[in-house]
Design a protein around this nucleic acid. Structure first.
Lengths: 129, 129
DNA sequence: GAATTATTCAACCAAACGGTTGAGTTTTGT
DNA sequence: ACAAAACTCAACCGTTTGGTTGAATAATTC
């Protein structure tokens, strides 16, 4: 992976086709807030929108962007649309970044320990509902 | 982390201030190609630009964006500007995503194994120069 | 010191982004 | 059947993005 000499010969070498969409989706604080709130479990569009300082239509568009990136999915049940986090989308970006860190991060072990600690603490804290 | 009830009460709750910049920087394929090419080691701006299908000025702007996000740094030595990967910037985004995955990913172990494999293979393959 | 090399700066342009409002479109409730 | 609820769609608007070109800057070479 990342074969040495010409990994940038063509711009998009072996890039997963939707990393653009995924990272772009993550680049907005509103969208990250939505994702964070979905960590708690499924949510209706309206419930997601309620705390956010913008119109329902704006939130709807944000959700479309998250859906197109494969980060959330919407299940329509009656007139209500329920949103849920889609783990695999995140995984793609995560793996890409990891492939990076393997080379570049010096304090990889420290990071690993930090992550382990966080993970354990979270699992103790509350269930994902 | 991600305290249950109102993690989205305000949009930017405890967000690292530059996640916007980091993810936005990663959202462009040209910029990811530049980062990938920097995995090999330091590079002059011109050398980074050479394989890319755009003007030098465009690449210069991409590098500014990467620098503002803290993902690369430029060391000017004479008239030549040498770019290097900045690991800590990536780590911030990485940790954010990890905090996410801890809750959401079902196949966490599989992912971990995949990562371990990739890491081992890469370390065997070539040195980062 | 004049020309060349390496890179940024500034102005511009089309397209995309993040928001708005107002009008659909389905369900649900009475 | 009617009105309200829960959305999405469409059109618009100001700002940012990703590229261009041409000029500016700075260090090297002749």
């Amino acid at each position: 992976m990342w074969a040495g000499r010409d990994c940038s010969g063509v711009v998009d070498t072996q890039d997963a086709p939707d990393l653009d969409l995924i990272f772009a989706a993550l680049a907005d604080p509103t969208r990250r807030a939505i994702l964070a709130s979905l960590l708690d479990g499924e949510r209706k569009v309206g419930d997601l929108a309620e705390p956010l300082p913008m119109s329902l239509a704006a939130v709807s568009k944000h959700l479309q962007i998250l859906a197109r990136a494969g980060l959330v999915s919407q299940l329509r049940d009656g007139r209500v649309r329920t949103c849920r986090l889609e783990p695999d989308g995140l995984a793609a970006a995560f793996v890409w970044m990891q492939g990076f860190g393997a080379f570049a991060m010096e304090d990889y072990d420290a990071l690993e320990r930090y992550i382990e600690a966080t993970l354990a603490e979270d699992e103790a804290g509350e269930e994902p509902r």
